[in-house]
């Protein structure tokens, strides 16, 4: 009796969870591969080039070929490096890019862990990303790597602050820290309209959090020859890349959940409601990723002092003020969600 209980109580749920995780991670990795391909195609189109077009139809298998090539390369660990941390760093970054997905709701029922502090969980995960980079930079025992890590740490910590305030306004407006509730609260109006300034701040801060152009100073190939990644090769480098893109997809997904109504269709009328809600979610995420790519193809890199100025002197006061305004308006007009 006790044994059967054990199987039913523990092993079955465990297998179920492992299954769910696989069902999230495998498509996710596929999407990441597609994103790298899509990015190159989009940049190419924006720059009147062709982009990858040799491997497979329209060059669709290019990411696989790249992956294979990287796998066959030699993993080099520099002589003065701290071996354990050197290997650990890309793993941290990669893992963090994946575990955030645990709380993202794909539709009203498809969510791995429906915890009631989901938004804080995601904030915690994104604030840990800096460790992968800082440890990588330090463990490689290289000047460029270290400089990149230092820049990245300062940058990510700075923009973390304004992202925090953005999350506060969103949860004020939704009245919950649960991501599913936040999406449900956008049934009438997606939050990017009433919280338009915070939407902009969130998007730009997300660019800084993921070290994307115009905030890609940690890599800054022109001056730091790749920054914290300079000593990495082969699979460790692949993990960095995968982690970085998984992070971009994650923050895009979060953007959709917070501001663009998650899985909700734009209008609750016939043609829109025919499309399954998961598709809505994925389509919106794809759109945000496209904007990430668009930004990278368009904007030059910020100077470091400009980056810091934007974070501390513009975003921090603006987001702080908006928190106060939102809270004040909600209190004054009785919009407080129950």
């Amino acid at each position: 009796m006790a044994e059967s209980n054990f199987w039913v109580d523990y092993i079955l749920p465990l297998l179920l969870i492992v299954g769910y995780i696989a069902a999230i991670i495998l498509p996710l990795l596929l999407i990441v591969a597609l994103v790298t391909y899509g990015e190159r195609k989009i940049w190419a189109a924006m720059q009147y080039r062709k982009g990858p077009n040799v491997v497979g139809p329209f060059g669709l298998f290019q990411p696989l070929a790249d992956g294979l090539k990287m796998m066959l390369k030699e993993t080099i660990i520099p002589a003065g490096a701290n071996r354990v941390l050197f290997i650990l760093a890309p793993m941290i970054l990669f893992t963090l890019g994946l575990i955030g997905w645990a709380v993202i709701p794909f539709n009203s029922v498809m969510v791995l862990a429906d915890i009631n502090v989901g938004i804080l969980y995601l904030f915690a995960v994104s604030s840990l990303g800096v460790y992968g980079i800082i440890i990588a930079g330090w463990a490689s025992n290289s000047k460029y790597g270290f400089l990149g890590a230092m820049r990245s740490a300062a940058q990510m910590v700075s923009y973390e602050v304004s992202i925090g305030f953005v999350l506060v306004t969103v949860l004020l407006a939704a009245g919950s820290l649960n991501l599913r509730d936040i999406v449900e609260a956008q049934k009438g109006l997606w939050f990017f309209i009433p919280l338009a300034p915070m939407f902009v701040i969130y998007f730009i801060s997300a660019l800084a959090e993921t070290n994307r152009t115009p905030f890609d100073l940690p890599e800054a190939e022109g001056e730091l020859v790749g920054g914290y990644q300079v000593e990495y090769s082969s699979m460790t480098w692949v993990l960095f890349m995968l982690g970085e893109y998984a992070n971009i997809v994650l923050l895009s997904g979060l953007c959709v959940v917070l501001f663009l109504g998650g899985w909700l269709p734009p209008f609750h009328v016939e043609p829109f409601t025919w499309i399954p809600d998961v598709v809505w979610f994925l389509a919106k995420t794809a759109f945000v990723i496209f904007v990430f790519t668009w930004v990278k193809a368009t904007l030059p890199r910020y100077r470091y002092d400009q980056l810091m100025r934007l974070g501390w002197k513009v975003f921090l006061p603006a987001s702080l003020a908006w928190v106060v305004i939102t809270a004040g308006a909600m209190h004054l007009f009785g919009w407080m969600p129950q």
């Binding site: 502090v117 804080l120 904030f123 915690a124 800082i134 910590v157 925090g164």
Partner: peptide
């Protein structure tokens, strides 16, 4: 809630600065 705040505040911010300085 405390669990998440512990990670956000101590790991995400304080310890980063520690690491920063110590390095």
């Amino acid at each position: 809630f405390l669990a998440m705040i512990l990670i956000i505040v101590y790991v995400g911010a304080v310890a980063v600065l520690f690491l920063f300085v110590v390095m």
